[in-house]
Design a protein around this nucleic acid. Structure first.
Length: 705
DNA sequence: TATCCTCGAGTTCC
DNA sequence: CTCGAGGATA
């Protein structure tokens, strides 16, 4: 490459180079968004952008106001299509101690109604530190490969997966439909060799094997992926046309027989002691394995038991990851900054002298809240032996769950003299409003409401975020810019951008990186979201305590926006039939209900919401088409002793079949399932004329296998 | 009233 | 990914 090395640039040269890059990239954007054919390739474009970012990081003071790094409407980097997983790819719960492993087994015994001594065979295998991949085979042929993504939808990386030797293109004697799941990773030796090659060709160095594997798999050019030495271990499956086996270990053996690599350290254990012994064994061999692992995964061996145990909201009950202790590093705490969230929460963030922890450079860490800095946990218990955290201190950093940097210890011997404990601000650093901490709360909150620019912007960011309106091309950065420019002050303004622009009130075109074309794209993306499901709208409003799950419950309960508004308005005194009705919704308590009602009774907030809804079409919430199970849509109550299954299991299974499980009998109850020893509930059911069945009748009714 | 579970809100780095 | 807190349950 003819371009000079960045390290050799003088300041003046760097300034000129940044200007040149800004021009070249701006032209490339125009070409892309306009009708002209692009003059440079994707790869060249990305290389220029990277070069620009590198120079900026070396000379931060020279960063241009129209820096291409901040550009809106730039070429979308995502060009992988999306694939929705037939069976969701979930994450695992974690165990950090031997005791947690015992708890895992005990919890499962309890859920299954087994006695404390009953054996539950469990497999143990190394947890590979790579990225998970789902491979779909139809008729024995590899149909597609998808990354995990958010667990529901991943990226289609089929062409790249086909270049990996460990991934068979076709299978013999496989089920007609088979989704194989496993981990793509890179060995230590291959990682070192790759970085050497990268260095020789002045390419980007990877921080660790996992990043190298991720970067290699997500190449737009499969030819590059082919040149990277990726490997694959199979350890699970998704959709299947027929079972692979009746145990976890049997299924893994079957995957191995089909031609997949499976981990040789997978072992079937009989009890917690064996699991822990195998964990220690794997831990001892960790350094010599030749690839990164970050723990050991335990899975209940019997697939029948796995089926019975089922899932919690995001994790299976029948599996857990036993993590190795986190890597630690010492560094200096340079400063404590305060961030203001959308609810006004003041969050302290540690600014650190950059330090490598577990393969990545960390320069920020969360400090949670006031008490955490002082050395107390949420229950007022002393942590870090009471050592408080002060700017200037040497602190020990680790990455919780190998992700979020946290501070675990302070070296008092190296504390500079003359420091005093950090005093947490009692006023908002952004708007100077009073910041109050409510009795019993861990967080201190800015009371400025929408007066506070930080809260206003964070609320808008939430509004356009993924689970909310999810407007393409309008992310956090753009929202901040639009807010600063006073184009968007409240959600309703987003839906007025087009008219304001077209009527000439606002001029996007004067800003670098925007043309009529990119503006039109943005407005189209906004118009796409003018029709919105009720639950999403509610979630988008960012009402405290009302998140995604609560929004769904509330939306289903009321059905339409008008019904919701009418009821919530009528409940404004936190009493009356509408208030009671809202509190009776399963999963909604007085705090959530109060937050919802209060939000709509503040005149200013209510007016703002009305201005927004005026411009939208709100889709009514419909219960997911209750499957054709005989109990779908019915409200049932369990009482007495259940003999064939535990309470928790019965509840989970009934809910899976579309029934609603309530705690007490009322006129709304459709069926009471009464086991031996049923008391007052059975009597009440009889009084109300509610249909009562015993456990066996219930199982017959739901056609339990 | 204590305990378990789930959700909400906050966070980092690539 | 984690913590804290709300809600349901025993």
């Amino acid at each position: 490459m003819s371009e000079p090395e960045i390290t050799d640039l003088t300041e003046a040269e760097a300034r000129a180079e940044l200007k040149r890059l800004a021009n070249v990239l701006a032209r490339a954007n125009e070409d892309y968004h306009g009708k002209d054919a692009p003059q440079i390739s994707d790869a060249e474009y990305d290389a220029l952008k990277r070069r620009n970012a590198k120079i900026e990081s070396r000379f931060p003071a020279l960063k241009r106001s129209d820096s291409p790094s901040d550009q809106v409407g730039a070429k979308p980097s995502e060009t992988f299509s999306k694939i929705t997983h037939a069976v969701a790819m979930l994450s695992l719960g974690n165990a950090f101690s031997d005791e947690d492993v015992e708890d895992f087994l005990q919890r499962n015994r309890k859920y299954l109604g087994l006695s404390d001594q009953d054996p539950i065979p469990v497999t143990a295998e190394p947890k590979i530190d790579g990225l998970s991949l789902s491979l779909r085979y139809v008729g024995g042929q590899l149909e597609h490969a998808a990354t995990r993504g958010d667990g529901t939808t991943g990226e289609n990386v089929t062409a790249n997966a086909r270049t990996i030797d460990d991934i068979p293109q076709s299978l013999t004697n496989a089920p007609e439909l088979l989704e194989v799941r496993g981990e793509v990773y890179m060995s230590h030796a291959d990682f070192a060799a790759l970085n050497e090659r990268q260095a020789a060709s002045a390419g980007k160095l990877f921080a660790n094997p996992r990043n190298a594997a991720a970067g290699s798999l997500r190449q737009l050019d499969a030819g590059i992926t082919r040149s990277r030495p990726l490997r694959f271990f199979a350890y699970a499956w998704g959709a299947l046309s027929e079972p692979l086996a009746d145990t976890q270990s049997g299924a893994i053996a079957r995957l191995s027989a089909l031609g997949f690599q499976t981990n040789p350290l997978t072992k079937l254990c009989e009890d917690a002691a064996q699991l822990i012994a195998h964990y220690r064994d794997i831990e001892a061999r960790r350094a010599t394995l030749g690839y990164d692992i970050d723990g050991v995964v335990y899975k209940v061996d019997s697939l029948a038991l796995q089926e019975r145990l089922g899932f919690r909201s995001t994790t299976p009950r029948w599996a857990i990851a036993h993590k190795f202790p986190a890597e630690l590093a010492w560094t200096r705490l340079e400063a404590i900054d305060i961030q203001v969230g959308r609810t006004g929460a003041l969050s302290p963030v540690a600014r650190l002298t950059p330090v490598t922890v577990g393969g990545v450079v960390v320069s920020n860490a969360t400090l949670h809240n006031e008490d955490y800095i002082a050395g107390q946990d949420s229950k007022g218990q002393t942590i870090r032996e009471g050592k408080d955290i002060r700017p200037g201190d040497w602190v020990q950093v680790y990455r919780a769950g190998d992700v979020i940097p946290k501070i675990s210890d302070v070296d008092l011997a190296r504390r500079p003299s003359g420091t005093s404990p950090y005093s947490f601000p009692h006023r908002c650093p952004q708007c100077d409003s009073e910041a109050l901490r409510e009795e019993g709360d861990a967080v201190r909150r800015c009371t400025g409401g929408l007066i506070c620019p930080a809260q206003a912007v964070e609320k808008l960011k939430h509004f356009v975020s993924r689970g909310a309106f999810d407007i393409e091309g309008l992310g956090a950065k753009q929202v901040e810019q639009f807010y600063t420019d006073e184009w968007i002050r409240e959600p309703a303004d987003i839906f007025r951008l087009r008219e304001n622009y077209e009527s000439g009130i606002r001029q996007l075109r004067n800003r670098e990186g925007w043309g009529d074309k990119s503006a039109a794209n943005l407005f189209d993306a906004i118009d796409d979201k003018r029709t919105i499901p009720l639950a999403r709208l509610l979630f988008s409003l960012g009402i405290r305590h009302v998140g995604e799950a609560a929004s769904n419950l509330i939306a289903f309960h009321y059905g339409t926006w008008d019904a919701l508004i009418a009821a919530v308005t009528a409940a404004k005194d936190l009493s009356g039939p509408e208030w009671d009705d809202l509190n009776a919704v399963d999963g909604i308590g007085s705090v959530m209900a109060g937050s919802l009602v209060t939000a709509f009774s503040q005149p200013a907030e209510r007016a703002s919401v009305d201005r927004l809804v005026e411009q939208l079409t709100v889709l009514p919430a419909e219960r997911p088409a209750a499957d054709d199970s005989p109990v779908a849509g019915l409200t049932v109550v369990f009482t007495g002793t259940l003999e064939r299954m535990t309470r928790a299991e019965a509840k989970a299974r009934a809910e899976k079949l579309g029934a609603k499980v309530a705690g007490s009998v009322s006129a709304k109850t459709d069926i009471l399932i009464a086991g031996p020893g049923a008391g007052s509930k059975a009597k009440k059911a009889a009084d109300l004329g509610v249909r009562t069945v015993d456990e066996q009748e219930w199982l017959d009714l739901i056609g339990s296998a």
